[in-house]
Design a binder for these strands. Structure first.
Length: 344
DNA sequence: TACGAAATAT
DNA sequence: CATATTTCGT
């Protein structure tokens, strides 16, 4: 009996680990969008995946962390992730080959994300955004062990939940245009589409709301909403002045600017990326879209829901701005094309 | 009309 | 305070 249980346990753990890896890979895909902003992050996740895979086969029954979910609430220590990260922390080899592209084509919507409840890596901001305001069913919460691939059907194109809050349609309005629109909540899926679109268009600073909206192909979505979201996004993607109390680790990572591209010193020469349209332009085109101003911030504000899924610190607490080195073009924030600079 | 920034609302 | 909507200047 007990043996049986152990066995089951073992299997469960293996499964958990598998799921964990899956989650990691999924996460990496997501981070991939930010590869310019969070190169180190991407790197770390990639390595974490590798490390995890290596460890997989030799998992024993006394695996310490069996919880697929882990505490998640506590960003501080999500067991596995953190450990993995710490482990590989120093083994920072610039491995950039196994970066797969195919970040989820726009239509493919195979959407592994689905993210009913991702693992730890998904982290907070999604959590809140995700259960936005579901009027009815409040997610089960209990059984989240395995959902496998069943749930993800591509039926969700637009209306389902991608759209977020309630059936926000044009109806249900009484006053002839007096009231404000109901707030639109950006579900994780919605946001992801946004991100994808962004990537296609070459970054937050060159993408325009309209383009984004069209790429997203979400029907209820209006131009203004995208515009707004984009504004917020841009605001957050600008350098947060190394805020964020560094957790434990401190790994000084130096950044340099290469043709307007912010990249870690280590692998700035790596031209290869998603193979998407995004990065291709960096080298050749010098035009407006040429060197797209990649949002420099290695780190977003911590207290924001609005941030990439994984947090990676690199600057040490002491050094203030010595970490970043810029060549020129101080204000490359926005104003990509039209009017630029509005001097008071 | 579209975009972006700022003001305003939730 | 963060996020979404609306207003305003271009």
């Amino acid at each position: 009996m007990i043996k049986k249980f152990s066995n089951m346990d073992y299997n469960q753990k293996r499964e958990s680990c598998g799921q964990y890896i899956e989650a990691l890979e999924e996460e990496r895909r997501k981070i991939h969008v930010f590869q310019r902003e969070l190169p180190l992050c991407l790197d770390l996740v990639t390595q974490a995946i590798e490390a995890c895979k290596r460890e997989m086969p030799e998992m024993t029954t006394d695996n310490v962390y069996g919880q697929p979910e882990c505490s998640e609430q506590t960003t501080g220590e999500c067991g596995p992730v953190l450990e993995q990260f710490l482990t590989i922390k120093d083994s920072l080899t610039s491995n950039e080959e196994l970066v797969d592209e195919e970040f989820d084509d726009e239509h493919g919507n195979h959407d592994p994300d689905n993210d009913s409840e991702d693992k730890n890596t998904k982290s907070d901001w999604l959590k809140s955004v995700q259960l936005w305001n579901q009027p009815d069913h409040l997610l089960p919460k209990e059984e989240r062990l395995q959902q496998e691939t069943v749930t993800r059907d591509e039926s969700m194109r637009k209306d389902p939940m991608v759209n977020g809050c309630e059936g926000r349609k044009r109806e249900a309005e009484k006053d002839g245009g007096g009231g404000r629109k109901q707030r639109r909540c950006w579900s994780s899926q919605l946001h992801r589409r946004f991100l994808n679109a962004l990537q296609h268009l070459g970054g937050p600073h060159v993408a325009t709301p309209k383009q984004i909206r069209e790429l997203m192909k979400v029907d209820g979505l209006t131009n203004d909403e995208v515009k707004s979201h984009l504004q917020k996004f841009r605001l957050h993607t600008r350098r947060p002045r190394q805020i964020v109390p560094n957790n434990g680790n401190s790994q000084t990572q130096h950044f340099v600017v290469v043709g307007g591209l912010w990249v870690p010193q280590s692998d700035y020469s790596t031209g290869k990326t998603t193979g998407g349209a995004t990065t291709s332009s960096t080298t050749t085109t010098t035009g407006i879209y040429g060197a797209m101003a990649a949002p420099p911030p290695p780190q977003w504000p911590s207290h924001s829901n609005f941030r990439p899924s994984i947090i990676v610190e690199e600057g040490s607490g002491s050094h203030s701005e010595g970490v970043v080195v810029r060549c020129s073009s101080p204000a490359m924030s926005s104003s990509t094309r039209n009017h630029y600079v509005k001097n008071n």
